[in-house]
Simulated assay, not measured.
Amino acid sequence: MTGNVHPLPRKAAPSLQPLMALVADGMNSVNAVILDRMQSRIPLIPALAGHLIAGGGKRMRPMLTLASASLLGYGGSRHYKLAATVEFIHTATLLHDDVVDGSDMRRGKKTANIVYGNPATVLVGDFLFSRSFELMVEDGSLKVLRILSNASAVIAEGEVDQLVAQRQIETSEERYLAIINAKTAALFAAACRIAAVVAERSDEDEMALDAYGRNLGIAFQLADDAIDYDSDASEMGKDQGDDFREGKMTLPVILAYARGTEDERAFWRAAIAGDRNSDQDLAHAVALIRRHDAVNATRERARHYAARAIDAIARFPDGAAKAAMTEAAEFAVARRF
């Protein structure tokens, strides 16, 4: 058979653009709430909070609140303040995390704790948590208050659990998944679930959105873990190997350690204990992770959770919101930053 052969068009890489376009107008309202509620008579508070809030983050969690509301056909305005609440909770945890981790870079710029110091950063994180609870109370729904306050407590538990597991080489994959379910996925789940509450939908719809957010959050964090051993700092906006130097037992390390020889395990024990953290040691760690295909295995697990997220919203009608949320799950795994 002869004639011209036309290759099939390649599917474009997954993007957040459909999600961002879907919620663009609503995010203007959310950002107005954020700007208003981060103000204080103490100038240091909005200056420090704005350093991170205006720092170029994806705003993934509040966007998911708005997208979930769109998926349900909600036509009110309560979700704007609640999406701002979700972003304040997230920002507060980031401020506290950077102090705990001693981080000096986030989103390509110096962290607030480096610019303003640890005490001010912790206290402004507390301020943003307090603002988030003010917004929850203003909404007036005890159910919304219960969901978001529970998520805040679970996040704190997850962070403490991660701290306890730090430099513990025998941390299992199961325990690690439990940690990220708490410290990352809980807020994704709550951000989506509250949309069903304000839209007065069924418990089944509520829990479907909870499942979407939870699985998306796990996929998102697993992709982060892979990126830390698979990208350079210019892509990530932070120093490559932060997790390695902090002795964090993320999934690529857990898998490489489990699959390694005894000599390799001895290296990992020393590295995670903090005795092998030079640039050469990081390069060796990356080589071991590649040797055992641990980054690809981590991304494969992330794809599994992204697929579960997509399955969770199958019950809802097709349309722009569902398509955007589906692509957001695909993006969470495919991204390089």
Rank of each mutant, 00 (worst) to 15 (best):
M1N: 04
G3E: 02
N4K: 15
A12I: 03
S15R: 13
P18W: 09
P18M: 09
P18K: 11
L19W: 14
V23K: 13
D25W: 03
G26C: 03
M27K: 11
V30T: 11
A32C: 02
V33M: 02
S40F: 08
L44E: 02
I45P: 10
I45Y: 05
A49C: 12
L52K: 10
A54T: 13
G56F: 01
R61M: 12
P62T: 07
L64H: 14
A67N: 10
L72V: 02
G73H: 10
Y74D: 01
G75Q: 10
G76R: 07
Y80E: 01
L82R: 12
T85S: 01
V86K: 07
E87Y: 11
A92E: 02
A92T: 08
T93K: 11
H96G: 05
D97Q: 14
V99Y: 11
D104Y: 15
M105C: 06
K109Y: 07
I114L: 10
L123R: 12
L123G: 00
F129D: 01
E134C: 15
L135V: 11
L142D: 04
V144P: 14
V144L: 12
I147S: 06
V154I: 15
V154C: 06
A156R: 05
E157Q: 08
D161P: 01
D161T: 13
Q162N: 02
Q166S: 08
Q166H: 03
Q168C: 00
E170N: 15
T171S: 01
T171Y: 00
R175Y: 09
Y176W: 11
Y176F: 15
K183Y: 11
T184L: 03
T184I: 13
T184A: 08
T184G: 10
A185E: 12
A191M: 08
C192A: 04
C192S: 08
R193E: 14
I194T: 05
A195C: 06
A199Y: 07
E200Y: 03
E200T: 09
R201N: 12
S202D: 00
D203P: 02
D203N: 04
D205C: 12
L209A: 08
D210G: 01
A211C: 02
A211E: 09
Y212Q: 13
Y212S: 02
Y212W: 07
Y212R: 05
L216W: 10
I218L: 11
A219F: 15
F220A: 13
Q221W: 15
Q221C: 14
D224K: 03
D224M: 03
D225R: 09
I227H: 11
Y229E: 07
Y229I: 00
D230E: 05
D232H: 09
A233T: 10
A233V: 04
E235C: 11
M236D: 06
D239R: 15
D239F: 15
R245H: 08
T250F: 05
L255G: 00
D263Q: 12
D263I: 11
R265I: 02
F267G: 04
A270R: 15
G274I: 10
S278K: 09
Q280P: 03
D281W: 12
L282D: 00
V286K: 13
A287K: 05
L288C: 00
L288K: 00
H292Q: 01
R299T: 00
R303C: 03
H304Y: 15
I310L: 08
R315H: 11
K322T: 00
A324G: 07
A324Y: 13
A329N: 03
E330N: 14
E330Q: 14
A332T: 02
A334C: 04
A334K: 12
R336Q: 10
F337R: 14
F337H: 09
